[in-house]
Design a binder for these strands. Sequence first.
DNA 1: TAGATTGTTAATCGATTAACAATC
DNA 2: TAGATTGTTAATCGATTAACAATC
Lengths: 218, 218
Amino acid sequence: MPRFKVSYAPSVRRLPSYLLLAKQAQEHGDEYISGTLIALELNLEPIQVRKDLSITGIAGKPKRGYPVLPLIGAIEAYLNWDKRVDAIVVGAGNLGSALSGFPGFKQHGLYIVAGFDADPAKVGGRIHGSPVYPIGELAERVASLGTLVAILTVPSANAQDVATTLVSAGIKAIWNFTNAKLKVPDDVVVQNEDLSSGYAMLSMKRRIRSALLSDDAD
Amino acid sequence: MPRFKVSYAPSVRRLPSYLLLAKQAQEHGDEYISGTLIALELNLEPIQVRKDLSITGIAGKPKRGYPVLPLIGAIEAYLNWDKRVDAIVVGAGNLGSALSGFPGFKQHGLYIVAGFDADPAKVGGRIHGSPVYPIGELAERVASLGTLVAILTVPSANAQDVATTLVSAGIKAIWNFTNAKLKVPDDVVVQNEDLSSGYAMLSMKRRIRSALLSDDAD
DNA sequence: TAGATTGTTAATCGATTAACAATC
DNA sequence: TAGATTGTTAATCGATTAACAATC
């Protein structure tokens, strides 16, 4: 029986921001950071920060706040970010390359160990230090690398085909940056990163703002 | 008084997926598409699709579904995607370049008309057909282009400084791909696209799945 | 000590889902 | 007509917020 509840999605999504502030406090040499301060910084309610942090099991101290180092440890442990995770990037274009170089990922234990691309011109090259292989070698490479996580940045039209290949190669988690709704077996998790829905939110916020209403939904 | 309610954020985020399916139905030559089918395709409840679509004002027909062309029109009108919007990309690295080339954006009326970068090596080049200018020319270029929307893909450490420059140049909407929490005036809208929170979700899903629990939260 | 902050329990709010009549 | 599907109203569920005692 796991000691964490299923879901809490909105809280989980906020944890990385708390983690970042805690790390900044650490660099600054602070021993404690209060939920009040975090809330102020992120434009949230203090009670929400306290509720969110409570799921990690961290214990705060009245009048001081949360001890910085244990807080960092608690968030990282809760998110499983205290262990190294290897991943491949499938689609070594600009997006795949951008993600491979994102400095935050290594900090969170995510290492991109290889790239794959259908374009022969990209094969043999490197994205941020990792080799790019032809997509035909996916199965054997994943097997020998033992990678369980894939970041999918191919054109949407090819997404399902590539996902199917990934699954049969043994991949158990797909971070999907295409707008295809992937069909995968039950034991494979998919996290969709949908740029269009982000742009829909921006469009609606502009519209609401220009209608002279106030709104701060994210 | 606007004819749309403030918020509905989760519904707004789902609309682009409905739009995509409607466009596919159109290409396929279908006259109607049912909420039942959309739900099946996206792994949602039919009642949720109907509720979501009702905010656009579209009227369906019992036994048939929603008329495809009016549905496309209603979603695009609701999201303001039926009008051209010009934007600049600030930070012409891999991520900025990937976003500039994302085919979905033009379809949604979003045109990237210029890029800006602090790196002299990038200046004078092009990202997907648009010129890249030095960041020092931001104010004058934005003024002459009349652009109101900026996509921010600079390193997080520079994000607030650049955002301040954007605001004084007259930008009214910032799509923020950095993890900085931007401080901007009330009349400027910000949409945060937080990769770390997406990765937090993926991490939790893996953890929950491996704990043999089932969960399909997005 | 006084007061800021945590953490718990209860209340509120908003989103999802259920029920079902209307209708093509 | 029969039956699939819409659209509305009500119920449920989960997340946010409020209230407040505990405590350093």
